[in-house]
């Protein structure tokens, strides 16, 4: 395997070397096997304390980090925005300095502001895992997405991956573009023009405005359409979006073998119909256990519980 400096933080895919990315995926593979066993417990982080700081709602990311901590034998404290001192006006800096003073060894954070994870890494001397910062990055999601893709279609070299939806506001799209291009895949972005941010091609993706062009891809990843985008004028309605860009059965009349992914939570009937979401071509629930395995790999790697070999 290519050698690379050891990982000290996971802030964005962009900052990872290809070798670091591959190492996380390889480590995740081991934890994936553990997930299949009857006793899911490998306490390589026994005695460590991990802080999970979620300034935005989360089900999948948060639960998979909690399970990853438990399976690795680490303690964790889980803090949500509501009920924390954030509502009293405490700054992020003060909150995390207090958590650090309590002995937290690693901090996982989701935050609505882009760059918040970088900011945190400047304030603390412990590893930081970005669990999503604003519109910027969601590296653990991209890693689990890549892991899932490789599981189902093998190497991503020269494979075509289409990402459909609100690219402009999506940290998932940005992190996936970085990860996919690092692994040699071709990335197509499909969205109404208001959802395409200027200069996105510079990240190495191609922009399409016609859903038909997405469907010949090996994998089609639909992104969540947030209701508030309608209010802020990016699209006239989720109904019109569903008509023009939603994935439905009639999209797939041909011989297309494209597989469907979605980072969740899904809006049934908007990004994709229930028939598609629940069909054989959907990998949506296959992504979920991989999220636990990938996050175990990241925590173990950053806290030294996993010996690189």
């Amino acid at each position: 395997m290519e050698s690379s400096p050891p990982l000290t933080n996971l802030l964005s895919i962009h900052e990872l070397t290809r070798a670091q990315l591959l190492l996380i995926l390889a480590t995740a593979q081991k934890y994936k096997s553990l997930m299949a066993e009857s006793i899911r417990y490998q306490p390589v982080l026994h005695g460590k304390t991990i802080g999970l700081l979620f300034y935005e709602p989360s089900t999948r990311t948060r639960c998979s980090f909690e399970l990853a901590c438990r399976y690795l034998g680490a303690h964790y404290i889980s803090i949500a925005k509501a009920g924390s001192s954030f509502v009293k006006g405490e700054t992020l800096k003060d909150t995390v300095w207090n958590l650090r003073a309590m002995g937290v060894d690693l901090l996982v954070m989701r935050h609505p502001v882009s760059g918040a994870a970088h900011y945190l890494s400047q304030k603390l001397d412990i590893p930081i895992v970005n669990a999503g910062d604003g519109m910027h990055a969601h590296p653990t999601q991209a890693l689990l997405d890549i892991f899932t893709m490789q599981e189902h279609i093998g190497t991503l070299e020269n494979k075509v991956i289409a990402i459909v939806g609100d690219i402009r506001h999506s940290r998932v799209a940005r992190s996936n573009i970085h990860a996919l291009t690092k692994l040699g895949a071709q990335v197509r972005l499909v969205a109404p023009p208001t959802f395409i941010p200027p200069g996105i091609e510079q990240l190495g993706a191609k922009v399409y405005q016609n859903i038909e062009e997405a469907l010949s891809a090996d994998i089609i990843m639909a992104l969540r359409i947030q209701k508030e985008r309608q209010l802020s004028g990016y699209i006239p309605s989720t109904g019109e979006y569903a008509r023009l860009f939603g994935l439905n059965q009639s999209c797939f009349n041909t011989n297309s073998e494209g597989l469907i992914m979605h980072p969740g939570p899904i809006n049934r009937g908007v990004e994709l119909t229930s028939e598609i979401a629940d069909s054989n071509r959907s990998l949506i629930l296959k992504q979920i256990p991989n999220g636990v395995a990938v996050r175990m790999a990241i925590l173990a790697t950053l806290l030294g519980g996993h010996q690189n070999e």
């Binding site: 910062d133 941010p197 200027p198 200069g199 990240l203």
Partner: peptide, 13 residues
């Protein structure tokens, strides 16, 4: 400023 750097950093332009 709205442009490629804002897009890359995920900051609203």
């Amino acid at each position: 400023h709205e442009g490629p750097t804002a897009t890359k950093l995920g900051l609203a332009g």
